[in-house]
């Protein structure tokens, strides 16, 4: 009996490690490929790059185009000046800056608007609540593809195309029902007595929200913010539709531009760019793992 459980445990670990290696292999390979030349990337069965250790690595960094990219990215922090902001359309520093200009306000506006709307749904009893909630759930299933064409026509008429307004304004109007729903579910889990006693004490509804509920909602807001960050940052379709000029390109569009723009693609550089592109996600994930897991777990659960 005991032998069997030991064998079982070993087998389980082997299986877990094997699956994990298969799943993580593409990411590891992407990282390694960022240090390779085209010849090394293609036709080779090896994962680790040739020039990996010590001085060779440094030299390679300095000489290779991919290395140039890394240095360039480094300058983002040291040398935040116009000289490199204006170095042309293939500059990832610009793409990054654009991505953050697009994503950060979208995330913040989503959080503010979704909190207000969720508060309205979770803590008030009003005529038409059932219908409005039904509509909210319905829009959860409304595919983006159905609304994008009239939205585009509308935004084009208002001169919003090729700006980030098609991302910021919907965020301010809580047009992503997923987050409203997520926060409603979370607020329903908070004890009602708290805000009711605050109300009886003469606290306005808005102050109740800000002073009583908001501090308790921090984990949920964190989760919602992370997901909105992840989705907006990764988004390709909407960026492709609404943003035209290369100076306003986000990282996603920039990657696409590098892929299409060169006749002979330097794949090592492409992979370096991809690595850098996914880096903010990986950093966020490891910094805030708990919120990712909680966020996913609570949304699926109570529906």
């Amino acid at each position: 009996m005991k032998k069997k459980t030991v064998a079982n445990t070993i087998f389980s670990y082997l299986l877990i490690i094997l699956i994990g290696m298969i799943l993580i292999f593409p990411i590891v390979w992407m990282f390694c490929a960022a240090f390779k030349t085209n010849e090394e990337i293609f036709g080779s069965t090896g994962i680790l790059p040739r020039a990996w250790t010590g001085e060779g690595f440094r030299v390679w960094l300095a000489e290779n185009e991919g290395g140039g990219f890394w240095q360039y990215f480094g300058s983002l922090f040291h040398n935040f000046s116009e000289s490199w902001l204006g170095t042309g359309r293939n500059s990832y520093a610009v793409f990054f800056w654009n991505s953050f200009k697009l994503v950060i306000p979208t995330v913040l506006l989503t959080l503010v608007s979704s909190t207000l709307v969720a508060y309205g749904f979770a803590r008030f009893n009003f005529a038409g609540k059932k219908i409005l909630f039904g509509i909210l759930i319905g829009t959860l299933m409304l595919p983006n593809a159905v609304v994008i064409i009239p939205r585009y026509a509308m935004y084009a008429g208002w001169g919003w195309v090729d700006t980030y307004l098609p991302f910021h304004v919907p965020a301010a109007l809580a047009a992503a029902p997923f987050f409203v729903y997520m926060l409603i579910q979370f607020m329903r889990g908070l004890p009602r007595d708290l805000d009711e006693s605050a109300y009886i004490d003469g606290c306005s509804t808005f102050r109740t929200l800000v002073q009583i509920l908001l501090p308790l909602m921090v984990p949920a807001l964190f989760s919602a913010g992370l997901f909105q960050f992840m989705w907006t940052y990764n988004d390709y379709f909407n960026s492709l539709v609404f943003i035209n000029s290369a100076t306003k390109y986000t990282v996603s569009l920039g990657l696409r531009l590098s892929l299409d723009g060169e006749s002979v693609v330097n794949w090592g550089k492409m992979m370096a760019a991809s690595c850098i592109a996914v880096l903010p996600l990986i950093i966020l994930f490891f910094a805030a793992q708990k919120y990712f897991v909680e966020g996913i777990a609570t949304t699926g659960m109570k529906g």
Binding site: L23, P26, L255, S274
Partner: peptide, 18 residues
């Protein structure tokens, strides 16, 4: 944690290129 990592990238261009 490791099994979740690929989900981070969603429909991003980077993993499509990869």
């Amino acid at each position: 944690t490791v099994y979740y990592i690929p989900s981070l990238f969603g429909g991003s261009v980077a993993v499509s290129v990869l």
